[in-house]
Computed example of a mutant assay.
Amino acid sequence: MKYILSVAVILCLAFSASAQDAELLAPTPPGPFIKFSEMSHDFGDIEQGEKVEYTFEFTNTGDAPIVISNVLTTCGCTASSWPREPVLPGTSSKIEVSFNSAGKIGHQNKVITIMSNATNNPERVKIVTNILPKTDS
């Protein structure tokens, strides 16, 4: 019985690993495809009232131009700028995000949704931070 259970566990692990490998090796579908170099950025601890910024870089790994139509944020405290011109295949660009921590406290997780004509539309990146109370100086 132990032998059968051991074999079943080994087969499950092997299947799981091969499924993950297949996903990593899957070819990019035809059309534009947006690939971010980083899907999340953690600012760590910041003081309430601080404004922080981060730039998410991406590459068009597809075979057609990407046109970003909109970048949506989870609240008005995050702002963004993005390329308004098409991003050609094989080229890179960036999306700039800023976060104003005024009036916020504690752990924050803000999702930025990128709307485009890419085959992996919509794509999401996020910023994370922990806002500490403002210290009196």
Rank of each mutant, 00 (worst) to 15 (best):
G31Q: 04
N109K: 06
V7C: 09
K134M: 10
V67M: 14
A22Y: 13
V71N: 05
N109E: 10
T113V: 15
I10Q: 10
N109F: 10
N60D: 12
V87I: 00
P89C: 03
C75K: 05
K2Y: 06
D21R: 13
S40D: 10
Y3M: 13
S92M: 10
F58L: 03
D63C: 01
C77A: 11
F36S: 02
N109T: 04
L88R: 09
Y3D: 15
V7P: 01
D136L: 14
I4V: 04
E96R: 04
S40Q: 10
S18P: 04
E57H: 07
S80L: 04
L5N: 11
V9D: 03
S40H: 05
S116K: 05
E57L: 05
G31M: 02
C12K: 03
L25D: 12
Y3F: 14
V71I: 06
T74H: 04
A79E: 14
A102V: 14
A19C: 13
Q108H: 08
V52H: 09
K104S: 06
G62L: 01
N70L: 10
F36D: 03
F43L: 08
K104I: 03
I66R: 03
V7Y: 13
M1I: 01
I10M: 15
E96C: 05
S16M: 12
P122H: 07
T91C: 08
V111T: 08
E47R: 07
D136Q: 15
P32Y: 09
Q108C: 08
G49S: 14
T28Y: 11
F56S: 05
E23C: 12
H41A: 01
E23Y: 13
F56R: 05
I127C: 07
D21P: 01
I10T: 15
S6I: 11
T135G: 14
R124M: 09
I46W: 08
N121A: 09
E123R: 01
I68S: 03
N121S: 11
D63Y: 00
A64K: 15
Q108V: 12
V87K: 00
T91G: 11
V97R: 04
K104F: 09
A17P: 09
L24I: 01
F33T: 04
I46Y: 07
K104R: 14
S81W: 10
L24D: 04
